[in-house]
Design a protein around this nucleic acid. Structure first.
Length: 114
DNA sequence: ACTTTGACTTCGG
DNA sequence: TCCGAAGCCAAAG
């Protein structure tokens, strides 16, 4: 094949990362972006969450464990997270306790396997 | 090719 | 702790 890596669309990688967040854990927009291989693309994570149906969207939080959605959707997110065991301290989730740590990708080859 | 869009993040006051 | 401004960046229009 040609030398350049086939970059799968960012949205696919991001959606895959979101799907890896286990029940009862959370992540952040920035961390998801980085885990997907696109650091500093936190805003794209938001776009994917809006566009792609069927993702565990409630597990993605803003920096510091804050809910970014406003209004009813924000309430819904909090409710769903609490229902799966995530506890809040004020308006935040304690990330030290509930943040999912994505396994590090190997630098050389990432064939999609683990 | 330019503009808009996104559920963002960081920093300074 | 709570804003507002600035920075961020690929996809979509």
């Amino acid at each position: 094949m040609h030398g350049k890596s086939t970059k799968l669309p960012m949205s696919i990688a991001i959606a895959a990362a979101i799907r890896r967040i286990p029940r009862g854990k959370v992540s952040t927009y920035g961390a998801v972006a980085e885990a997907a291989g696109y650091p500093r693309c936190a805003r794209h994570v938001a776009k994917v969450l809006k566009q792609v149906p069927g993702l565990p969207w409630q597990r993605v939080l803003g920096a510091g464990g804050r809910i970014s959605l406003s209004g009813e959707y924000g309430m819904e997110q909090r409710f769903l997270l609490q229902a799966e065991g995530v506890r809040f301290r004020g308006k935040r989730v304690d990330l030290a306790a509930f943040e999912y740590c994505f396994p590090r990708m190997r630098r050389s080859v990432c064939t999609g396997k683990r």
